[in-house]
Design a binder for these strands. Sequence first.
DNA 1: GCCAACGTTGGC
DNA 2: GCCAACGTTGGC
Length: 136
Amino acid sequence: MKYYLGKTEPEQDYSIDDLQKEGRTLWDNIHNALALRFISEMRPGDKMFIYHSQKQRQIVGLAEIDSDPFPNPDDPTSTWTVYVKFLEKFDRPVTLAEIKANPDCANWYLVRHSRLSTMPVPGNIAQWILDIAHGK
DNA sequence: GCCAACGTTGGC
DNA sequence: GCCAACGTTGGC
């Protein structure tokens, strides 16, 4: 089981609250080639951290990959999509500032390549995020 | 609101 | 196939 992180802009696009309300959504509108490759590697049961970009800049919750990746029939320019389902909204979000302060994250895409919208999360970082989010 | 980073497009 | 121009993203 692998961890990923998906960015969303909560005010003008989609938020963790929308996902909680709907329960399940199509993760689409991704155009970047590298991000699309990561989506194509996702498998059901993998987890996806939900990150709110722009104003909030923090990881706000966790979702689960709920389908195999497939080409989006509604958008021929954006080849890969998956369904994700809501798992939890963190009581204690993990901020970008905290992530940048952790030396283990220095080479992670979120820090090094800030414009990438969908990326893998190394296991040790995923566990560290979950520990903070769960107040450990 | 500004701008750095970076991806994409199109002229040559 | 190079590269300048341009558009987009997202941190600050």
